[in-house]
């Protein structure tokens, strides 16, 4: 069973091909990072234009990589939300064109669920009960997956139960905004990750909001404001900040919150392992701290390799394959939902 997955929700045009739910056959990404870099963030109209130009060549490239043709596919899967509406529409429209041309089933994929389900390509079937932390450019939430299997008749929907989420900024957004403020390139996450390696994570005691409050919600906008205020204070005093220390301390504060909240959720809810998902799961410090903490608490840890953490087409194909197995197909009227939630 072969599924082709198309991802155009944000700033990567990506196509993946997955065989029998677990085997990656192709994963091709045309990144737009350079187009958005001058603006320091993703510009929706620029993204939509670039997706349209990149999509056909990316599909071709993926088919060549997998050594197969469109007519070999059993379904065409595409991210239908959440994401930028104009960007999503390019992928969904193209997917419909492909599905129409070869009379193949169409599958609408939830981008966030795909971030989690991509782990099956490297670790096999996800083993519930588990907690997944989805940390990305637009989202930061902790969900539970308790049931085995893929949802059957009712489809996959509702597999994930929401435990907590940021009440303001997403972690990736905080990384990007702070990076922009201190003059690092875009996207900011990898830049801060790199710079932080030369800094002291304990140098500055930035706030960890809601850390000790019960529940699994978190707040990251106060942290962002605190970093900006700290830098302005130094500037006013004519002191050069040690940016590596700032980066390391800021990153540590974010990571602390993620680790504490996720492990608390896993412990309280009796979940046996943790899955890290989304672009920020590429963060070196986050990965290291989770490894340490899960080991200490006797929890399993599932962390996809870095190229499968940031946006990619393989994740859409993997999630699409699960939906196909569960019989959850879309029709040609499939719409896009910029605000599609991870858990219902």
């Amino acid at each position: 069973m072969l599924v082709l997955g198309i991802e155009t929700s944000c700033d990567e045009t990506a196509v993946g091909i997955v065989e029998d739910r677990f085997t990656l056959r192709a994963n091709v990404i045309a990144s737009q990072v350079e187009l958005h870099a001058p603006y320091g963030g993703v510009v929706p109209e620029v993204a939509a234009r670039a997706h349209l130009e990149a999509l056909l060549p990316t599909i071709d490239h993926a088919l060549v990589e997998a050594g197969c043709g469109l007519s070999d596919m059993d379904a065409i899967a595409v991210t239908s939300g959440p994401g930028l509406i104009g960007a999503l529409l390019v992928g969904v429209s193209a997917a419909k064109g492909l599905a129409l041309a070869h009379d193949k089933p169409l599958i609408g994929v939830n981008h966030l669920r795909a971030h989690v389900e991509v782990a099956q390509l490297e670790f096999g079937e996800l083993q519930p009960p588990l907690a997944a932390l989805v940390v990305s450019g637009g989202h930061t939430s902790i969900v539970a997956l308790e049931k085995v299997g893929s949802g059957g008749e009712s489809g996959d929907d509702g597999r994930f139960r929401q435990l907590g989420a940021t009440i303001d900024d997403a972690a990736g957004e905080a990384f990007d905004k702070i990076a922009r403020f201190i003059g690092l390139g875009y996207p900011g996450g990898p830049e801060i990750d790199r710079l932080a390696r030369q800094g002291d994570p304990k140098a500055i005691d930035f706030p960890r909001a809601m850390l000790h409050e019960p529940g699994y919600d978190m707040s990251l906008s106060g942290l962002k404001t605190a970093v900006i205020r700290y830098l302005r204070r130094l500037e006013a005093a004519g002191t050069e900040p040690d940016l590596a220390d700032v980066a390391a301390s800021f990153q540590e504060a974010i990571v602390d919150v993620q680790v504490v909240k996720t492990l608390r959720a896993a412990r309280d809810e009796g979940l046996e392992r943790v899955v890290l998902a989304g672009g920020v799961a590429a963060n070196t410090r986050l990965r290291a701290r989770f490894a340490e903490a899960c080991e200490r608490e006797g929890l399993g840890l599932v962390v996809p390799s870095i190229p499968l953490c940031t946006d990619n087409g393989a994740m859409v194909a993997a999630s699409g394959a699960n939906l196909l197995a569960a019989g959850t197909l879309a029709d040609l009227e499939l719409g896009v939902d910029p605000n599609l939630p991870l858990a219902g």
């Binding site: 966030l112 637009g138 900024d169 939630p341």
Partner: peptide, 11 residues
Amino acid sequence: ARGRMQGGAAT
């Protein structure tokens, strides 16, 4: 546009 339900209130 990216600030969505579970994280990412616009600022």
